[in-house]
Each structure stands twice: as structure tokens, then as C-alpha cells.
Amino acid sequence: MRNVETKNQILKYIVDEYVSNSKPVGSVYLINKYKMNISSATARNIMVILEKENLIEKSHTSSGRIPTPKGYEYYAKYLTINEEDKLASKIKDIFASRRSSIDNIIDEAVSIISEASKLTLVTSENKNDELLKSITLTPISNEIAIIVLITSSGKVDTKELKLSKRLNLDDLKIAIRIFQERLHNVKLVDIPKSIESLKPILKQHIKNYEELIQTFVIGVFQNYKNIANNKIYGKSHLIKSQDIKRQELANIIELIENQSIWESINEKNYLDENLKLEILPSNTSIISKRLLLNGSVKDVSVIGPTRMDYSKAKNLLNIIEKYAKENLKNNVDIEEE
């Protein structure tokens, strides 16, 4: 038992140090800083074990160790401590004020947390009931057209379509007219299936109708399978991070702007019932909390570099959940009096 505790302690110190300083961590440094009652040889042996378990790895630039994605995940699951930090009382006051709806209060709290913690946070409301209200076409050239979609929430979305030589603008105009007539008020998530059902009609008017269907399903409507209404706070913290791979940043931004972050995380990545963690190859980590609030669902996510402070991120999400539920309970009690 003692060995397990010491091993966990060393791993926690390594992650804490690397998150704070972005420098490889050596055994002597840990013993001196944290006044550990073990020899440097014992510390090195434990670090070898952690390395064999793929929780840490040797740095290329020194003899120190740095955490692996598996190490970060283990740290986030088992080694973080849920302590209320200095933001807790401020967040509590926001929720206690009951100045507006619970959704607006959560957004206000998240905005303050992002500014104070220098973390990127996202609130999400699933929009699986979003309907298509309008679809129009603007030709740019014989090979390129812009499709403009208007949804039931008033959102205007533009998509660029590149046409193959087998498709032309006349075919596209016919398809748009049919879609406008037949897909009006259809849920966005159901449109790919609905387009498939239009095959007999499209076949009558368009020679290469199957290629056109694929072009629309993949190029226009594919991303609506996981659509969400996201509000982003502190996006600049993510953009300025030197740890996140620049070539992957556009994909991350697209995810947090348009997709349900909770749904994008694999089901196997639960930390607990309503908390998920994903560590991406882009050196980015996502921790997402699902809030179940009197029948409604709202997700709050923290996005940052892999060496983010997981303890702080989890703590902030737990604070939001705690005071949101207290707010709802207090409001119910007031209504019943």
C-alpha cells in the first residue's frame, strides 16, 4: 500500500510540476522540493516503474520525465483533489442572485471563470430539434457554389460546394428547388436520411443524381449529426497556447464552435457518470461536464493543452454544477411556499 501511495504521489508531483513549468522533472528535484522521505534511488526506481506503465516518459532534452497522455488521464481520474478555490464564493453569489434564467446565470459564471483562470470554456445546448427553414444557392463559378442555410433558431450557415465535371449548376439549381420544397421544417439531423428518400424525384430531373446526393450529404449536412448551440469563453487562451499543434488548431476551433463537445467524446472516456475526458493527438485535452437541470441538459467543457491543471478544471466544473443545482432547488422551494 505504501508503495502505491508513493508511486501516485510521485506521478502527481511530476504532472503538477510539468503543468506549472513545462520542464522535465527529475527525482532529486522532487525529493528536495516536496521534502519526500525517500532516497533518490527509490524515487528513480519508482519513476522507472511509472515509465514501464506508460504513465511518464523520458524527455528528449534531459534526464527528467514528463507525463504521457495515459499519465494525464490517470492523474485526472485518481489524483486530483476537488477543493473549492477562491472563485467559489464569487460563483456562489452569482447563482444566489437569481437575476435571470439558469442558462444565463451559468453563462455568466463560466465567463467569469474563464477570465480568472485563463482557461477556454464552452457551454453547449444540444440542437437536435433544429429545423431547416431555408436553403438557397449562390453560384461563384461553374465549379463552385455557396449554399446558404437558415435554421429555426435564426442561425445562418454557409457552405462552399465544389462541383465535379459530372455535375453542373443547372442540376444544382434543380436540387435546391426540390430541397426547399421537400426539406422545409425537417430536422437538420434527419436531412441526410430525408435526402435519400428523395432519390426517385431527383432521378427524374438529374442525370447524376446519386453523386449529387453524396455531394450534399457529405459537403453540406454531414456535420449536423452532432449540432449544438455553443458559447465560447476565452478562445484566445486556446489560440495563444504554445503547446497545441498549430496544424490541428482549426479542427479544434471548428469542434468547439459548432459541435456538441460532450457527444464528440467517446463513451469509454467517462471519469464519472456526468464527466468525460478526452486527450487528443493535438496536445489538447477536453473535460466536459453534463448538467442535468430539472429536465433540461446543458454541457460545460474546459479545453486546453494536455498539461492543463486537471484538478482546477474539474473543481471549476463541480462548482458550477453544485451552485446550479442549489439555485434550482432554492427556486423550487420559494415557489412552493
Rank of each mutant, 00 (worst) to 15 (best):
S124G: 12
K155I: 01
S89H: 05
G71S: 09
I56S: 00
K312R: 12
N251A: 01
I319N: 09
I287F: 11
H60S: 08
L163C: 03
Y209A: 06
E337F: 14
M308Y: 11
L255H: 02
N82A: 09
L87A: 04
Y72I: 10
S124C: 11
K203D: 13
P69H: 02
V156Y: 01
D93C: 14
Y310L: 10
I253T: 10
N223P: 02
T284Q: 06
G71M: 11
G219V: 04
L163N: 02
N54Y: 10
K118R: 12
T61K: 05
L255I: 05
K159A: 05
L137I: 08
N230A: 11
F95K: 01
H184K: 07
G234M: 10
N229I: 04
I81A: 11
I244N: 03
L238Q: 15
S22Y: 09
L87H: 03
S194D: 06
K7T: 11
N223C: 01
V156D: 02
I244L: 07
K173A: 12
I195A: 03
T42W: 05
T215Y: 04
I146H: 05
K58F: 10
T158W: 01
K276I: 07
Y34T: 08
A145V: 13
P192I: 14
I218T: 07
A175W: 05
E321I: 05
I232G: 02
K165G: 03
L316D: 12
P281D: 13
G219H: 03
S22R: 09
E210Q: 14
A88G: 05
E321P: 13
Q247P: 00
E321Y: 11
L316Q: 13
N258W: 03
N330I: 00
L255E: 00
V110W: 03
I213H: 00
S100K: 14
E115S: 09
K207I: 01
D309E: 02
S111F: 05
R182L: 01
N315T: 15
I286L: 15
G71C: 06
T158Y: 01
E115P: 00
A43Q: 06
V297E: 13
E254I: 04
N3Q: 15
K314I: 13
I10E: 07
M47C: 05
N8S: 12
T215P: 00
P281K: 10
E181V: 07
E211A: 04
D107E: 11
D190P: 05
K240S: 06
K35L: 08
I102R: 11
F95Y: 06
I81N: 11
P67D: 04
I206H: 06
I253D: 10
N223G: 03
V156N: 04
L280P: 02
N54M: 12
K276N: 14
V148S: 10
V122K: 04
G304T: 07
E5P: 00
L79T: 07
